[in-house]
Design a protein around this nucleic acid. Structure first.
Lengths: 153, 153
DNA sequence: TTGTATGCAAACACTTTGCACGAAA
DNA sequence: TTTCGTGCAAAGTGTTTGCATACAA
């Protein structure tokens, strides 16, 4: 059994134990979430599942995400200007590298985050329980494109 | 001349050199931004200035913020569920500690952020230009309240 | 059989925009 | 005198909600 399959089973079990039911739509949404390393938006999820569920509703996607949020089984990256992005493969806070050109999101290794959180807790007196670490820039592909464009000029 | 006054002058100068005009409303918004260490929302700014400008419009606040954003003179912390928060006192990216109970935002010292950004750039191939570091938890006051409530139970 | 999930449409909250008027430069 | 800023109202955008029906357990 591979990691996504385990993860899917864990999510289903968690939803069930919280009294949620597993409809075909919901199962498909969960399945797609764990298999998508690209941190999809609700809209993206919806569009990708439409071929399989021709009258799927965006509301259903949002409601499923809400259930996952309530269970702590999904990480929501909020943006006020664009759609929120979701990470259900690894629902605990971790850093992200976000491409400003194409919107790609990568999950880099996170050395030293805990130490930083501890230092900030001591400096401010806050009791820190969670965090959000986003690094913005250009992904390798967009960086290459930009370099080529500059060479041409 | 104290720091907020300097900062205000710098913001005015920057807006002017970009061709913007300084109306009394705009000056008041800027003034309030540099004096507010609490990272206000557009709505908060609006409510605080209403006594001085009884027919101030929220649109004017947003338009002024937009001008500041275009000049790189304000840091916008986006939230999709709540109002965005603004920091014009220090418009370059820096960590924030955000209280989940009362919404307070503190500016802790930031040791090691650059090192982390560099490590992530190397690990992912991203060209990192900016970042957002939010730590969520309870501020000292809300932590105290919660402890007292637990003692009573 | 009971209660939750679905899908539709309407409602929401925050932010942005269009426009006519007024004011900064 | 020439823009640009203002204030109002309307439009946008992404997300949530109400409700009747369908379906999981």
């Amino acid at each position: 059994m591979d990691a996504p399959t385990d993860r899917l089973a864990a999510m289903v079990a968690r939803l069930r134990e919280r009294g949620h039911r597993i409809s075909p739509q919901r199962l498909a949404i969960l399945g797609h979430l764990v298999e998508s390393p690209d941190h999809p938006t609700a809209e993206t999820l919806y569009r990708r599942l439409l071929p399989r569920f021709p009258d799927l509703s965006l509301a259903t996607v949002y409601k499923t995400i809400a259930a996952l949020k309530a269970c702590g089984e999904i990480l929501e990256l909020q943006f006020s200007g664009q759609d929120n992005r979701y990470d259900a493969a690894c629902p605990t806070p971790h850093p992200h590298c976000i491409c400003l050109a194409c919107g790609a999101i990568a999950d880099p290794p996170a050395p030293g985050v805990q130490a930083m959180a501890k230092a900030l807790a001591e400096a401010t007196g806050y009791a820190i329980t969670s965090h959000r670490l986003d690094f913005y820039g250009l992904c390798p592909a967009c960086r290459r494109k930009r370099e080529q464009r500059q060479e041409r000029e």
